[in-house]
Amino acid sequence: MIRTYALLAWTWTRAAAQYPLSFALMTAGGLVVGGLDVAVIWVIFANTGELAGFGLTEVMFLYGASQLAFALADLLFGNVDKISQHIVAGTLDVMLIRPASPFVQVAADRFTPHRLGRSIQAGAVLAAGLAGLDVPLGRVWMVPVMVVSGIVIFAALFTLGGALQFLLTAAPEVANAFTYGGATLTQYPLSVYDTRIVRGMTFALPLAFVNWQPGLYVLGRPDPLGLPSWTGLLSPAAALALAAVAALAWRAGIRRYRSTGS
């Protein structure tokens, strides 16, 4: 699986290198978009000094953690929610006759490292936020765990979005609402939202486990919903549960695949 992914990703990277100007522009574009996000945070803090009870470094930490997880999940698996293009063009047929998982082939399809720019930018914000905080060593270990859990959660969302497209070929945007929407929702401390939304993100679609719950644990802050502090430690479990659901949905999707006319 990993070997096949690396092989295809390397192939696409070489193919993309045929168009160096396009590559440079896409990388620059990614950095500008990411930079605007950070600018918004700066503008907020230039005016208020805190956001829903969280200081600048804490918000940078929460933002960096969720955006790093999302950028890496998008880099590695973001193409899975473009499966409807492969269904319509008939290229999924070609993937299904090769001795490799169609999931890996779709995920690695048109792999382009320019999305790495976004990850580096998010990683820098996360590092800057952490540097400004005084997180005790006994809780710092949770930071890489939450980033990896976040990657798994976003990857599972991309997969669910892809699986949905076996049913709704014509509506790939529905999936984007959850993936890109999830990334946007988790940019800020969840306490800025209505508690009903936060509950939904904790118990239904586990977006709160990307950076909010584990973030509260790292920051040593109580949960506004009153959940115990160890809730944040459940991130890996929540991520795995969502990944299992996504894997089942994907399998069901492949079995229901209808191909195209010819």
Binding site: T11, R14, Q18, G90, D93, L96, I97, R98, P99, S262
Partner: peptide, 26 residues
């Protein structure tokens, strides 16, 4: 499916199984 893929060859006249942007050799 994957085990079968190693035992059979498939050609589609209407679409290629090759990579559009790569030289044939690659």
């Amino acid at each position: 499916r994957t085990a079968l893929a190693r035992r059979i060859g498939v050609v589609f006249g209407q679409r290629t199984t090759l990579w559009w942007d790569l030289p044939l050799r690659d």
